[in-house]
């Protein structure tokens, strides 16, 4: 069975949540790995989950982005190992310049936890293999620094994008909630797909919008993408 590593930094708090969903929804082998014990070989995919790595001191994701693990992960990308960054994981990947853009404090200057509707644009790669273009889904966000900023839309327009649909909760440029590399091998997003993948956790009138991500990676690791 394909194996997925979920990296835990000091302050990471959603590692077990992602492990649960990878096992339950993706039906993959998954483990939470303490950052200093992580070695890239032997893993079929890696997730950097949400939380407050190093307490978000300095800037969200800034310290973890300089860590040995992230250096090792960047090297592993050459071997085609899919990498997903959720929330703080996304912040780390932009700070490490693996993904374009930066994440700034929310326009309201307050932490925001709520469900939002998002749309997938140009979906491709292992994390979005089963997603069709313009697919609309519900997921919760929970962040204080989630305002995506990028100077020109042209920088990202051709990339896989996840955009807020109908309501932009934090003032992100071009409503961007997530972005991938051109091949879709790396994906980062502020909403939490792991919190929107089971009927028990999804409010009655909303969709289990994160499920498609976990079904995609499951399919991609077994059958290629």
């Amino acid at each position: 069975m394909p194996k997925v590593a979920v990296i835990k930094f000091p302050g990471t708090n959603a590692d077990l949540d992602v492990v649960w969903v990878l096992r339950k929804v993706s039906r993959l082998e998954a483990y939470s790995i303490w950052h200093s014990e992580f070695r890239a070989d032997g893993w079929d995919a890696v997730v950097i989950p949400g939380g407050f790595s190093y307490g978000d001191w300095l800037r969200a994701g800034a310290i973890a982005a300089k860590s040995e693990v992230v250096k090792e992960l960047v090297n592993a990308l050459d071997n085609g190992i899919p990498l997903l960054g959720i929330c703080n994981g996304f912040q780390i990947l932009t700070e490490a310049e693996v993904l374009p853009g930066v994440l700034l404090p929310n326009e309201s200057c307050r932490f925001i936890c709520r469900w939002v509707r998002v749309r997938f644009v140009n979906p491709r790669g292992p994390w979005l293999k089963l997603v069709s273009n313009d697919f609309v889904a519900d997921m919760p966000i929970a962040h204080g620094e989630g305002r995506y900023y990028v100077g020109f839309y042209e920088e990202v327009s051709k990339l896989p994008l996840i955009t807020y649909y109908g309501y932009n909760p934090n003032g992100s440029s071009y409503d961007i909630a997530g972005v991938g590399t051109s091949d879709g091998l790396v994906l980062g997003l502020m909403p939490h797909p792991e919190r929107a993948s089971e009927p028990e956790l999804t409010p009655r009138t909303l969709s289990q919008g994160g499920r498609v991500v976990w079904l995609s990676i499951s399919n991609a690791l077994r059958e290629g993408w």
Partner: peptide, 19 residues
């Protein structure tokens, strides 16, 4: 108030604040 709290972390929250 409660939207400033991450009430979902831990993926245990079935009935969420306000519902």
């Amino acid at each position: 108030i409660y939207s400033q709290y991450d009430y979902e972390v831990g993926i245990r929250t079935v009935v969420k604040p306000g519902l």
